[in-house]
Amino acid sequence: MTTSIDIELLNRENFRNCLEAISRPGTIHQIQTFLDSGIMAMAVMLLYSEVNFYQEATGDWKMMKALTGACEGKVSKADYIFLDAPHSDILMESKCGDQQNPEFSATLICACEHVTTGTTVVLNGPGINGYKETTLPVSGTFLQKIQEKNRHFPLGVDIFFLTTDNRICALPRTTKVEQV
């Protein structure tokens, strides 16, 4: 049985991996599951009583709301968006902040296939030493939509990709993605 103290331990270890992932875009980090689910682990780590979320993902979200106190709402208002698969329309509808408050923007957590199966890209921007060639577990079309959404820095969204083997990589809004 998972106890509350286990959740705090899980959260801090998973957060460190998420912080590493978003600090160094394209790097891959293992996260520990919660209720046998990677997306639930991300939710329990990120959600608390002062944030809104939207989800189209498998999991016990009723329990998650009770556990974290977070409110479920519309895509356009959500601070965190949990998806079972990358979804371009949801991405485009998510909030991206304003010039004075760019932090009022959504963070997407997208479940995907394995990191090795996807689109080969070259990344550059903060967190990357020069250029980094890697594979992102999403389609080229979705990556184009991300670039479109993030074209007016500092407005934009930040995305975590979560693979079926519970590994994460992140694309903050500062990362430029070029498909190979």
Binding site: N11, R12, F15, C18, L19, I22, S23, M45, L46, L47, Y48, E50, V51, D79, P102, E103, S105, T107, P126, G127, P154, D158, P172, R173, T174
Partner: peptide
């Protein structure tokens, strides 16, 4: 911690 962590993730994403 969660509130500070949220701020940290945003801060890293917007250098």
């Amino acid at each position: 911690k969660k509130e500070i962590r949220r701020s940290l993730l945003k801060a890293v994403a917007i250098p």
